[in-house]
Amino acid sequence: MIKIGNHISSSKGYLAMGKQAVKLGANAFAFFTRNPRGGKAKEIVPSDVEAFLELAREQKIERLVAHAPYTMNACSADPGLREFARNIMEDDLKRLEYTPGNYYNFHPGSHVKQGPEAGIAMIADMLNELLKPEQSTIVLLETMSGKGSEVGRNFEELRAIIDRVEVTEKLGVCMDTCHVWDGGYDIAGHLDDVLEEFDRVIGMDRLKAVHVNDSMNPMGSHKDRHARIGEGMIGLEAFERIINHPALHDLPFILETPNDDEGWTREIAMLRSMEHQG
């Protein structure tokens, strides 16, 4: 059975998130480690975490994909904002050890007129400060759509970050279907070719999770506007191929579509119904 879920609000703690995932029919989910537009994190209550871990075992919730806040920019031109990003990631990685063996996804950042090479170097510097061989969390670089001065607009930029990082066994990639489509990769018409290119440039062993989002815009638009599954330019047939592709099928699929609980429940059930058996 595919591992699929959506972003769930972390405002009520781990056990509440787990119960919400079960209610939606999910067996994986994502959550923001703190306010996605700010820096404050909810206090972790060990008894709440233990209750969640028991629920996860009972309900076979197989993977958490924590998401760093959007305000984190590891390659900002402002040294204070880079320090802010470093402090957030350091704290998040400590907190995630309460739920060991999961993923921490982040947007690489925007270089803001410094150039992608400078941005890549700054992101790698932060990762080299923070990644430790003993941590259980795998940190994931997210593929980006290329709007503005985003770093990670293509596979080569992510590879350049990876090449500069020392503890690479704790580093992976999360592929966002909307982002790669908007970035110019034809995952609707030529999925095999895109995955072959990913493997050539980065290596499929680095791909740990997929954000499944349709796109409001044509391929190569560099816009990053998510749509509900089957209601955008990527299309429903493409998502059937994506979730069943042998290189992707066992990865956690996380919905970030513009939806509510009822809509996510429908999307999870719809994608699960498209899974090929045997």
Rank of each mutant, 00 (worst) to 15 (best):
M1K: 00
M1W: 00
M1I: 00
N6R: 06
S9P: 05
S11P: 05
G13L: 15
Y14F: 09
L15M: 04
A16S: 13
M17Q: 09
K19A: 03
Q20V: 01
K23L: 15
L24G: 04
G25H: 08
N27I: 00
F32K: 02
F32E: 06
N35I: 00
P36M: 10
R37N: 09
R37F: 02
G38N: 01
K40S: 00
E43W: 03
S47Q: 15
S47P: 06
A56V: 07
R57T: 13
I61C: 00
E62P: 01
E62S: 10
L64F: 13
L64P: 08
V65S: 10
A68F: 11
P69T: 00
P69M: 01
Y70F: 15
N73Q: 02
C75Q: 13
S76A: 11
P79E: 08
P79F: 08
P79N: 01
R82Y: 03
E83M: 14
I88E: 15
M89H: 10
D91L: 12
L93V: 07
K94L: 09
L96P: 06
L96D: 07
E97H: 10
T99D: 06
P100I: 12
G101C: 04
N102V: 10
P108V: 13
P108N: 11
G109I: 08
S110I: 05
H111E: 12
V112H: 12
G115H: 13
G115M: 15
E117N: 04
E117D: 15
A118C: 06
G119V: 14
A124K: 08
D125Q: 15
D125P: 09
L127D: 07
N128C: 12
E129A: 14
L131K: 10
K132V: 14
K132I: 13
E134I: 09
S136Q: 08
I138T: 14
I138Y: 05
I138M: 08
L140V: 03
E142H: 03
G146D: 08
K147S: 09
E150Y: 07
F155R: 12
E156C: 01
R159V: 07
D163C: 02
V165Y: 03
V167F: 08
T168D: 12
K170S: 07
L171I: 03
G172K: 10
V173R: 12
M175W: 09
M175P: 11
D176H: 06
D176G: 08
C178F: 09
C178A: 14
D186W: 06
D186E: 10
I187P: 04
I187E: 05
I187G: 00
G189E: 06
L191S: 06
L191W: 12
D192G: 05
V194S: 06
E196Y: 07
F198Q: 03
M204F: 12
D205R: 09
K208E: 10
K208F: 09
H211A: 00
V212D: 03
V212S: 02
N213V: 01
M216V: 04
M216N: 11
N217G: 01
M219R: 14
G220T: 10
H222E: 04
K223D: 02
D224M: 01
D224C: 00
A227M: 13
I229N: 12
I229C: 15
G230M: 13
G232R: 11
M233S: 07
I234A: 14
A238G: 09
F239W: 12
R241F: 03
R241K: 15
A247Y: 11
L248H: 11
D250Q: 15
D250V: 01
I254P: 01
D261H: 05
T265V: 04
L271I: 00
S273V: 00
